[in-house]
Design a protein around this nucleic acid. Sequence first.
DNA 1: TACATTTGGAACAAAATCGTCGAATAAAAC
DNA 2: GTTTTATTCGACGATTTTGTTCCAAATGTA
Lengths: 191, 191
Amino acid sequence: MSANSRQQIIEAAGIIFERYGFKKTTMDDIAYAAGKGKSSLYYYFKNKEEVFEAVVAHEAKQLVAEINRAIDTSHSAVDKLRSYVNIRMKRFVERGNLATALNDNFLATFAFIEKIQNNYRDFEIEMIAGIINEGINRKEFKPIDANFTSEAILTCMIGFEVPLLTKSKTSEESITKINNAIDMFFYGICT
Amino acid sequence: MSANSRQQIIEAAGIIFERYGFKKTTMDDIAYAAGKGKSSLYYYFKNKEEVFEAVVAHEAKQLVAEINRAIDTSHSAVDKLRSYVNIRMKRFVERGNLATALNDNFLATFAFIEKIQNNYRDFEIEMIAGIINEGINRKEFKPIDANFTSEAILTCMIGFEVPLLTKSKTSEESITKINNAIDMFFYGICT
DNA sequence: TACATTTGGAACAAAATCGTCGAATAAAAC
DNA sequence: GTTTTATTCGACGATTTTGTTCCAAATGTA
């Protein structure tokens, strides 16, 4: 089971899925993009959904890495939270498969997407809660409930996603808006 | 036969075709985007190909209008030719359905696309030849063969399209490059 | 009411698609 | 060089999707 070939397929599939969406992408499309025969895909993946899952997992991993990099370089909790929100929203505006997976109506019907959605939501809440707890320890934030607050922030971000999906505003405009919102959030939180 | 509904369909179809390409766009997609039932489309168009033809014709008309506007505002043949090439390439980089129709491999197999391709090529050659003739009359250009030269210029542009399609460079970069090429062309032509 | 225009639900043949199977080929191990 | 293992692909069946037609219903119009 060559990890190389597998990765090759995942990356090719990522491009095609991003271009056409899950439904309109065929296994033939992916195979062709990966330079393989269709049936070869089934040597590495059980089915189309599993390919998509792998693509999303790959993107999520990259996103996590990117977020961690940004968080590590900023040293106050305020900056960390700001970095987190910025990267998350930028990624979202760029519309990767992860974002699609988390939002596409068609995909919402799939059970496996529900799993991804819930898993990722848990991850995000944990991530944000970690930052908030750090802020509390550093006395940057009031001694609020970290889990409750992180859920609130996440919900707030999701709220911002909705108009992003329907109306196609420029990325900067949207990021500015959510930054303003996050600022408002800060001034309510900070000591 | 409400021209309104027809136009509505053409515009909706344009968006969908641009997003998914001819093959991946279904009549259902178009109908949904136009807010109609699938079978209603057949009241206005004979089949899917005819819808696409109408979309391409619509875009071509817009492109022609845009080119004419630009050409009318520039008063030397050199400027006109430069405007022409710029707008044409800009449009191409933006990848409308016209551009897709002229290049997509899948579409190339269709007879009806061949018709569009040939029609449009003739139109372009005529257009460029007109500018060149004007340049010759104004003594901006040597007394060259206008038809022959315009074919050469068109072929040159098409040559530039190929790497544009495969590698996704930025639009500015490509336009700069072709402008340089056109400049070279000028210095060979100008008196 | 009578007539023309416009719409969409149901039906269907043809095409596309997913996923399987077994054979072919390449790589590795012996 | 032969056996074994890993990988690829063509062909196929079952199922779904899609382009297109037909007709009845709805809507406008005089």
